[in-house]
Simulated scan of single mutants.
Amino acid sequence: MTEYDDIDFALLRALQVDATQSAGALGRIVGLSQPATWRRVKRLQSAGVVKKRRLHLDAEAVGFGVTVFLGVKLATKGRVSLEDFERAVSAIPEVQRVEHVLGLYDYRLRVVARDLPDFERVLRRRIMTLPGAGEVEANVLLSEERLPGPL
């Protein structure tokens, strides 16, 4: 395991706040030159600590006003591979997150839709037709009080 120092952790915190910052801007935050900062960021990426930089959109502002969390229990364990289900569900653009979980359901999905009729269409035509899809429980997001933050 690679050892990380206080400067590495300061870089990670700064990147979590705004991943678009240049190496020069990050260097000013952590007290390093631009080349030294760039090398550290590259090392963190190579080590797999920084997987990717993402843009976070406001789903409602771009027309997706409904978010639903689905618990999905596979109907035929053993007859459908988990990989087949994961590959098929990941191909649905409205499914934003796929989590294989332990508990009452086999998977937890985060699904966005324009409105409830649009969600019903996605559920009936896309999700319920997936290989192995069985019991489903839906929970509609009413509000999100805390967005994912720094680790």
Rank of each mutant, 00 (worst) to 15 (best):
L55Y: 13
P35N: 06
A23T: 06
V49D: 09
R43F: 04
L26G: 08
A47W: 06
A23K: 06
R53T: 10
K42N: 14
L44D: 07
W38I: 00
A47V: 03
R28N: 14
Q16C: 14
L32H: 11
S22P: 04
G27R: 00
G31H: 02
T37P: 04
V49I: 15
R54W: 14
Q21K: 12
G31I: 01
G27Y: 00
L12M: 06
L32Y: 10
R40K: 08
I29Y: 11
V50H: 02
A25H: 09
R53Q: 11
A36R: 09
A25C: 05
G27A: 01
R40M: 01
R54A: 15
K52R: 13
Q45K: 14
V41H: 02
G48Q: 01
S46L: 14
K42C: 11
R54D: 15
L44R: 07
R40H: 01
Q16A: 13
G31W: 02
D18S: 03
V17P: 05
K42G: 11
V50A: 06
G27E: 00
A19M: 07
V49N: 07
A19V: 11
W38G: 05
Q45G: 12
G48M: 02
V49W: 09
R28S: 14
G24A: 13
Q45Y: 07
R43C: 00
Q21F: 03
R28I: 12
S46R: 15
R54Y: 15
T37M: 04
R53V: 10
L32Q: 12
P35H: 08
R39K: 12
V17C: 08
S46F: 09
R28A: 14
V50Y: 02
V49Q: 08
Q45H: 09
K42E: 15
R43V: 03
Q34H: 11
L44Y: 06
T37W: 05
K42P: 07
R53A: 12
D18L: 03
K52P: 06
G24P: 07
V41D: 03
Q21A: 10
L15K: 01
S22F: 00
A19F: 05
S22A: 00
R40A: 05
Q45N: 09
D18W: 03
